[in-house]
């Protein structure tokens, strides 16, 4: 049987690389790392808010990928599988350290909408986008996790509910509170 190796003469998909890596092609695994390390690291950094922890977690994720790559069947995109694996690793890390994701210490204490200055024409410029990234790091862990999963990574509330073992309602309410808190944080920067 011919082993699965990366076809060098034409562009290679993630799936080709995964198959080659699973068959023992180290260069293919390295390429997968180079293609995806920034996304994995960014996700870890956002969820953990610490560069050192995020690097350790990224390392653990890629070691898991190495160990489990043979079990990837290609039913979903590799990126989806990888993101799921990353999210699971981070959530496991939270659980081990007793980080409570279902509650936050400061539930619902954001500014009331009626007191908000009128800013319907304001546009968040690219500077605000960077501020947004920073502001996410300032959210309490519960808000932050739901916000990242839903708004940054595109998970549905049903999936979040399953991952975090909370109700769909809680996931929705955490998300709303996270967004409103971010709005306050961004406003305070301007």
């Amino acid at each position: 049987m011919m082993p699965a190796t990366v076809e060098r003469s034409e562009p290679v998909s993630d799936l080709d690389l995964v198959r080659a890596a699973a068959a023992g092609d180290a260069a293919a695994f390295e390429q997968l790392y180079h293609l995806h390390n920034r996304r994995v690291y960014s996700l870890c950094l956002r969820m953990l808010s610490s560069g050192t922890q995020a690097e350790d977690m990224t390392q653990e994720v890629f070691l898991q990928v190495f160990r489990k790559i043979g079990s990837f069947r290609g039913d979903s995109a590799f990126t989806t599988w990888l993101h799921r694996l990353t999210v699971n690793q981070v959530l496991m890390h939270f659980r081990k350290r007793g980080v409570k994701l279902e509650h936050t210490s400061e539930e619902g204490d954001f500014t009331n909408v009626v007191e908000t200055p009128l800013q319907s024409t304001r546009r968040i410029s690219m500077v605000d986008r960077l501020d947004l990234d920073k502001a996410i790091g300032e959210l309490p862990p519960g808000y932050r996790t739901v916000f990242i999963l839903h708004d940054v990574e595109g998970y549905e509330h049903e999936e979040i509910s399953g991952l975090l073992k909370v109700s769909v309602g809680t996931s929705k309410s955490q998300l709303h509170k996270a967004r409103m808190r971010l709005r306050d944080l961004l406003k305070s920067k301007h």
Binding site: A54, I124, D128, L130, I136, D151, G154, R179
Partner: peptide, 12 residues
Amino acid sequence: QIVHFSKQLPLH
């Protein structure tokens, strides 16, 4: 805007 820009955060 928060929802829109959350999809385009810079990579680290």
